[in-house]
Design a protein around this nucleic acid. Structure first.
Length: 285
DNA sequence: CACCAGGTCTCTC
DNA sequence: GAGAGACATGGT
């Protein structure tokens, strides 16, 4: 990935591997806003402005190293896409979401965000998370910031209900409580299987939420988060619906191996944009 | 007024 | 273990 440090940020030179719209709208991140010149994006303890121009994009920030990691800039996505093209179903999806990158986000934020996401829709998820940030008293020179576990220590269930979290309020409360009482999120070094099993001990974290946390919070790309959209895709592609969600997730992650997370994002993004996934047809090329 | 949204929990069998 | 129902909330 070609990029270079400039005075107040990072210049993205290779636009084919970095598409702000695709990165932000493929469903992995909830805290960003459209701005006149691009986007404002919050990471754990800092903020950046993504300025979109014709020849290049600029990540305007005082925390350059942090956003190199956040945007996963040191990874070669050309190589990933080349390897994914060895699989069926991927050609159209990759062409559609060509500049997607899997962001490296904060695990705690991912846990709460994806608990909120369950049986919910994206605009509402974003609203709940925004209110969580507004009301949890975290301020910095960057403005809004996602609360730390400690900042949520004294919050009651009704605090989460008032965010609009609905029945997930109890899940959030229990999870925050567990983390504040020693439940470790330091699981980067664990195997995917064990890390998943660990996360699923949290209230409100099932297979799908756990896999999203593993992918977006720990960059474990051997998981294939399987939700309603992936379920639709599975049925459409294979013409049968004889497996449970969990079995589909197992099958797909076994099939795509370490490329699962990437494959999932391309397929999810394309399908959610209203396009059905097509089997790549060589004769059409 | 039903039905749905990046599912999970709980209670059965 | 696998399979129904319930579940808050806001939008079509």
């Amino acid at each position: 990935m070609k990029y270079s440090f400039i005075q107040n940020g990072i210049e993205i030179i290779d636009k084919s591997e970095f598409n702000p719209k695709h990165i932000l709208e493929c469903g992995q991140v909830f805290r960003y806003q459209s701005e006149r010149l691009g986007y404002k994006i919050w990471a754990k303890n800092s903020v950046c402005y993504l300025i979109c121009e014709k020849e290049h994009d600029i990540i305007s920030t005082n925390h350059r190293e942090e956003f190199v990691h956040f945007f996963d800039l040191d990874r070669n996505y050309s190589e990933i896409k080349k390897n994914l093209l060895e699989f069926p179903f991927m050609k159209n999806a990759i062409e559609h979401g060509y500049g997607i990158r899997i962001l490296n986000q904060d695990p705690f934020e991912m846990v709460l965000s994806f608990i909120i996401s369950s049986n919910n829709n994206i605009p509402r998820i974003k609203g709940i998370i925004e209110r969580l940030c507004e009301r949890s008293g975290e301020t910095s020179d960057c403005g809004l910031r996602f609360p730390s576990p400690d900042k949520l220590r004294n919050k009651s269930i009704s605090f989460f209900q008032d965010l609009g979290a609905g029945y997930r309020a109890r899940y959030l409360y229990d999870t925050v409580d567990a983390i504040n009482n020693g439940f470790s999120l330091d699981i980067q070094e664990m195997s995917t299987i064990n890390a998943r099993k660990h996360l699923m001990r949290l209230t409100g974290v099932g297979r799908k939420v756990a896999d999203c946390v593993l992918l977006f919070g720990y960059h474990k790309t051997d998981v294939f988060p399987t939700d309603t959209w992936i379920d639709k895709i599975y049925v459409e592609l294979f013409g049968e619906n004889n497996l449970s969600r969990e079995q589909k997730a197992d099958y797909l992650s076994d099939y795509y191996g370490d490329l699962s997370g990437y494959a999932q994002q391309y397929l999810f993004y394309k399908r959610r944009s209203g396009n059905k996934i097509k089997l790549d047809c060589i004769s059409e090329d």
